[in-house]
């Protein structure tokens, strides 16, 4: 390999490393079931980052920061949590009827800068970035990356108390309830960025079970001016929904990136 090629290859690798979420790896939460009946049902949930959607083959999802929010909006403890080689798993007891949101939200600030001709990288909390970068650093690039990964489960009739948006980053505001999805009816959702409708954002909708199919179905849907997008489900199954926005740095303010991922189950009629 010539030295010019070698430099190009290294540069390409570096740019890959800098991308917040490499395209090939998908992060997901996978509930064992989403629609439950009975007095106090339990749900088991897996979480991982993998190459093949819903097959744990790469990295477990870290459980610190993962929460289950009950129908009344209060946090419900995770039980029997464990992190293995390829996936994390935990149970949630649905003690009250209604809808539970299981969510992991991260807010990570990343910086790169040059000092003494050497490129340095840093990641941490937004509050620490000012002290983390030396005063004499050049080529400073800072981005703030907010990401949410969610799934939903319901005991009895669906409710909306757990689904209130936080107003931070990209979020899904259900128009169709995420635990009331069937193959014959379209699902409608509103994508929000910092609590406001996110217009013109591409949403990817992928059906699980890809190992047994040559391809897809994978849908790409653009949100309308009101942030709303509509999904005509090709068939029943477990679906993975993803959207992302990348902002440009604005003066000294860091670039604001946000990503949203949800797993929803679409049942047969």
């Amino acid at each position: 390999m010539s030295s010019a090629l070698r430099i190009a290859a290294v540069a390409a690798l570096l740019s890959l490393a800098a991308a917040p979420a490499a395209q090939a790896h998908r992060a997901w939460l996978l509930p064992g079931s989403t629609v439950l009946s009975g007095a106090e049902p339990w749900v088991t949930v897996d979480g991982a980052i993998s190459n093949t959607l819903f097959y744990a083959d790469h990295q477990p999802m870290r459980l610190d920061g993962l929460k289950a929010i009950g129908p009344d909006g209060t946090e419900v403890p995770l039980q029997n949590a464990s992190t293995g080689k390829y996936r994390s798993t935990f149970d949630v007891k649905l003690a009250q009827p209604g809808t539970y949101k299981i969510v992991t939200a991260t807010d990570m600030t990343m910086a790169s800068y040059k000092i003494g001709g050497e490129t340095k990288r840093w990641r941490g909390a937004a509050a620490d970035v000012a002290t983390a970068i030396p005063k004499d650093a050049t080529d400073v690039q800072v981005s703030r990356n907010v990401r949410r990964i969610e799934t939903f489960v319901t005991s009895g009739a669906p409710s909306t108390g757990a689904l209130k948006p936080t107003g931070k980053g990209l979020e899904l505001e259900p128009i169709t309830h995420p635990n009331d999805l069937v193959a014959s009816e379209k699902g409608r959702f509103r994508l929000l960025l910092d609590g406001k409708p996110a217009a013109g954002v591409e949403v990817e909708v992928v059906l699980g079970g890809v190992r047994y199919r040559a391809k897809g179905p994978e849908l790409k849907i653009m949100t309308g001016g009101d942030g709303v997008f509509e999904v005509a489900w090709p068939e029943a199954g477990m679906y993975w929904i993803e959207a992302g926005v990348r902002g440009a740095p604005n003066g000294s303010a860091p670039a604001q990136n946000a990503a949203y991922i949800a797993t929803v189950e679409v049942l047969p009629d």
């Binding site: 629609v35 439950l36 009946s37 009975g38 049942l267 009629d269």
Partner: peptide, 12 residues
Amino acid sequence: ATWLKDMRTWWR
């Protein structure tokens, strides 16, 4: 009652 939801159409 745990399996009442298996009657999916009626349950919904």
